[in-house]
Write a protein that binds this DNA or RNA. Structure first.
Lengths: 148, 148
DNA sequence: TCGCAATAGGGGCATATGCCCATATAGCGA
DNA sequence: TCGCTATATGGGCATATGCCCCTATTGCGA
């Protein structure tokens, strides 16, 4: 069947693991109608308050343009709202709607279930260490070090 | 500016790190006109010989349908060919063309440069350990353990 | 040999992600 | 106040990824 996924490429390793985990998490989240990508956007908006597009994109380590696209389904479904900033008319701020907060709350139990499953299969402590490591890679400092 | 990307979600951690690293690698690979995703497909085809679609998709930890889509630009650009299997007419086999092998060869130096940069910023040994860890997560066994 | 379950892929549809470039504002220095 | 530069986004275009379901073959058991 499927040969063991062997590769020396760090990027490829990451992408494969990400695809696997996204599929696993998405399957668990499916009943509430949120992909893990979408949930992570709602979470970030919730944590940041009413972030501007650029701020939100940076926090998500996501291209601004990609973010704008990703927001559309969520806005269409009434989970969040995008409105011009009151003082800086260049800027647009993203806010959760009540429906958005509710959906986020609904997804919490399922997300926790996915986390539990992941940590059962991978190890709770190891998972924490891995997240730490990945956060380091995702940081702007890492990009700088890479480019230096 | 951008808050530190903090999250307790394993999937989100992975996706963020992956986006960062893909951007970094893709920028390095750009001169040869290959994305890292595309390069990893060419590599897999090269390693597996002339794999069938399903086999290749499994090796890449990629949905069969997604693979079919991903192959189109590569086939259009003449880097690989998809032909029906001689004995099993349900099956289609993917093969590198000469142009494909050549492109892959051209990309090698740039890929190595990206690897060097990554390992300079992250640590050579740590990178090897991380790849090991990620391969474990990407494995079918991990999915089974998650679902069990 | 017939018929049906199993296998291999593709099409349609929707979301995800990025790059480049155009546009709208802000802000600041002459 | 004028005008140039910096900032905040969006649009266009292309690739990436997945799910569900349909079709073409195979292969096997009755």
């Amino acid at each position: 069947m499927a040969p063991a996924p062997v590769t020396r490429c760090n990027g490829t390793s990451l992408r494969r693991a990400t695809r696997r985990v996204s599929q696993l998490y998405d399957a668990v989240l499916a009943p509430v109608g949120l992909k893990s990508t979408q949930r992570s956007i709602l979470i970030a908006v919730s944590r940041l308050g009413s972030p501007g597009m650029g701020e939100l994109a940076a926090a998500l380590v996501l291209d601004r343009s990609a973010l704008a696209h990703n927001l559309k389904p969520l806005e269409r479904d009434g989970l969040l709202r995008v409105a011009p900033d009151a003082t800086d008319r260049r800027s647009r701020r993203v806010t959760l709607t009540e429906a958005g907060e509710e959906r986020l709350a609904q997804s919490k139990a399922l997300w926790e279930q996915a986390q539990k499953r992941f940590e059962k299969a991978f190890g709770k402590h190891e998972a924490a260490v891995l997240r730490e490591t990945l956060a380091r890679i995702a940081s702007p400092e890492f990009a700088e070090a890479f480019l230096r």
